[in-house]
């Protein structure tokens, strides 16, 4: 591969006290790729996702985004912890969507979308508002812009959360089980927005249980269990013809 991978993980380890949640993750995500991570709960997939934007610190191994080491500077063969300001700087190009939406309840929908570009990057309000309106239009919620999150359905809230992340114009989007907290009939509207985003060439890493979405939209898929990647490959191959016993057992339960 000639292009710099968007995300490159080499033997990434993470432990909480004695519990080793990630036990050597090795993977590469190419630019514009939709990379799907599946696996049982407790397999470390969310933790890995949170390592990518340094919400969790990597304890061993190397993890880089767009060729840049996450959370550390490398100087003279030694790693130096990044200052908070520099970590925040790195996060600005990585959007994240959470299982529980985490919209700011004291702000209206449009204020949610405008918050980070104004506070973090100091962009002009008019410019940001313009962009926010376009993004809300894209997720089909421009009529809800003056509402508060509590007045929206779960699916609508999650679409606002996606617009909020996109407002920072990220080069990479992380989705942490974006549809797991939704009523079944609301899942589709969120997946539609994600599909559209994938079509536009956004690099996406998606932790999900939506196998249909993985098969249809995913370019690559890994199955994680017990803090390791058990199986990786084309989603259509892995999902229809799993090689590993643990993958087979997991898929037989969720499909």
């Amino acid at each position: 591969m000639t292009a710099t991978p968007m995300v490159k993980a080499e033997l990434v380890h993470k432990w909480f006290g004695r519990l080793e949640v990630l036990q050597g993750i090795d993977l590469e995500v190419a630019p514009k790729e939709v990379f799907v991570i599946v696996g049982p709960s407790g397999s470390g997939k969310s933790t890995f996702l949170r390592c990518i934007n340094h919400l969790e610190k990597v304890d061993a191994g190397r993890l880089s985004v767009d060729g840049q080491l996450v959370g550390y500077h490398e100087r003279g063969g030694k790693l130096h912890e990044m200052r908070e300001k520099d970590v925040a700087e790195q996060r600005r190009s990585i959007g994240m969507v959470f299982q529980r939406f985490n919209l700011f309840p004291h702000m209206t929908v449009i204020e949610n979308v405008m918050e980070a570009p104004i506070t973090v990057r100091g962009e002009a309000k008019a410019v940001v508002r313009d962009r926010a309106l376009k993004l809300l239009d894209r997720v089909g919620l421009s009529d809800k812009r003056e509402n508060y999150p509590a007045q929206l359905s779960g699916g609508q809230q999650q679409r606002v959360a996606i617009a909020r992340a996109l407002a920072m114009q990220p080069k990479l989007m992380l989705f942490d089980e974006p549809t797991s907290a939704l009523d079944p009939e609301l899942v589709g509207e969120v997946l539609d927005v994600m599909r559209q985003l994938a079509d536009e060439g956004m690099t996406m890493i998606v932790v999900t249980h939506e196998m249909g979405f993985a098969r249809e939209v995913g370019d690559a898929l890994v199955f994680m269990d017990g803090g390791v990647v058990v199986e990786a490959g084309d989603p259509r191959d892995v999902l229809t013809n799993p090689q590993h016993a643990r993958t087979k057992a997991f898929l037989s339960k969720v499909l």
Binding site: A88, R91, G95, N102, L103, F104, A116, V120, R164, A165
Partner: peptide, 15 residues
Amino acid sequence: GQGEAATALGLTQMQ
């Protein structure tokens, strides 16, 4: 989750 979402958007601790 509020702090996490803000942090993920690149806000500093004080912000």
